[in-house]
Design a protein around this nucleic acid. Structure first.
Lengths: 205, 205
DNA sequence: CACAATTATGAGCAAACATTCAGGTCTTGC
DNA sequence: GCAAGACCTGAATGTTTGCTCATAATTGTG
């Protein structure tokens, strides 16, 4: 939080096996700590402690705290992008319900690992312009894709497809994040069924 | 020098008009600052500054920072509860679409004031057990009410009404919070229409 | 006016935190 | 087996922040 010029201490390039191992340990520990305590209370010292390394080592691999969360977020986004691409290639000409099912299923699946972490990522994400832009870009892209799908698909009966697309993307994203990480988690199979039903019936009118 | 023991009580009971005025100023300023900077970066000094009072005065009305956010949250919850009650009394025997419309409309309306604040309230909620319990209680109550409605209403064709009720409540709450506070805010009229359409078509099958 | 209660002030304290650095330990390559 | 560099350590530093306290100003009351 220093207001002076950003010192871009370039992150260390791992050359030995143990280095890469330490990096992984840090990320794993951070995922757990952020998920458990939230971003603000997830201190770097706590992360280092849980990773079983010293605080100094942590700062040899990440220039600052934000960078750790950013890396976790980027990884999650890349996973999501991979899933989305796969789905888009797999089932273009099928019934709309099938498309929703695959998207929803993929989304739920990619959130089962560390659900609480992912809520922190989404909600308390630092405002690093880079990452935020990436999120925004992916979302816009997804909305665009979905809107085109809605516009072309013969089953769909919706007038305002722009608003509808935004509504659907937002709904799926938020509700999955929330319900999977809920204190009393829902049965994911049921969630998937109901969610797909809701979206399908919505667009078919 | 009088031996005063009332310093132990952190929160002051307002007795003069200006005291109540100061209290209001603090809350208004806090609403703005939290909405602008988030909870962590919304410092008490910043709140006091914006309220045009000294930091000392702030701590005569609130025992700590959390209490300020808690009060804002409680107020919002009470508003929401009032709306929900009104809706429940107004339109019990109407078509299901009408019920959804009133709920959604009320929810959107109560979020137009300080949309960004309300996302902070929801997402970075303080760990105060009291308030968190209140949120949980209200949500459970709403889910119960909605489930009963779904079970009894002749138009509804849904098997798993428990999951459906949770899905609907979560969806409405989250999506409204998100989209109303979005960088590029949606037209609230359209949002209302599409949301109601989605929910109605969903439950009518 | 007097004088007590209430309200306001803001410099400063203590704790928490992210981050640094001077100096260790371990690996690798020869 | 021995440098050289990769990797690790953790007490120390500087900053930020929530919050206190001694004191001052304002208001109510007789």
């Amino acid at each position: 939080m220093t207001p002076d010029q950003r010192r871009i201490q370039p992150r260390k390039q791992p050359r030995q096996v143990r280095a890469e191992l330490t990096r992984q340990r840090i990320l794993t520990a951070a995922a757990h700590v952020f998920g458990e305590h939230g971003y603000a209370a997830g201190t770097t010292n706590r992360i280092a402690e849980r990773a079983g390394i010293s605080i100094g080592s942590l700062y040899q691999y990440f220039p600052n705290k934000d960078a750790i969360l950013a890396e976790l977020l980027v990884r999650h986004l890349d996973d999501g992008a991979a899933i989305a691409e796969r789905v888009q290639r797999e089932v273009l000409p099928g019934p709309i319900e099938e498309v929703f099912r695959l998207f929803v299923h993929g989304a739920i699946e990619s959130h089962l690992d560390e659900p609480r972490l992912l809520r922190v990522l989404l909600e308390q994400a630092p405002k690093s312009t880079d990452v935020l832009e990436k999120v925004e870009r992916m979302k816009t892209h997804l909305v665009g894709y979905l809107r085109a799908l809605l516009d072309e698909h013969p089953e769909v009966r919706i007038a305002d497809t722009e608003t509808a697309a935004r509504l659907i993307v937002t709904t799926a994203e938020l509700v999955i994040h929330q319900l999977v990480a809920d204190h009393e988690p829902v049965d994911t199979g049921r969630l998937e069924d109901e969610m797909v039903a809701m979206l399908t019936r919505y667009v078919k009118g």
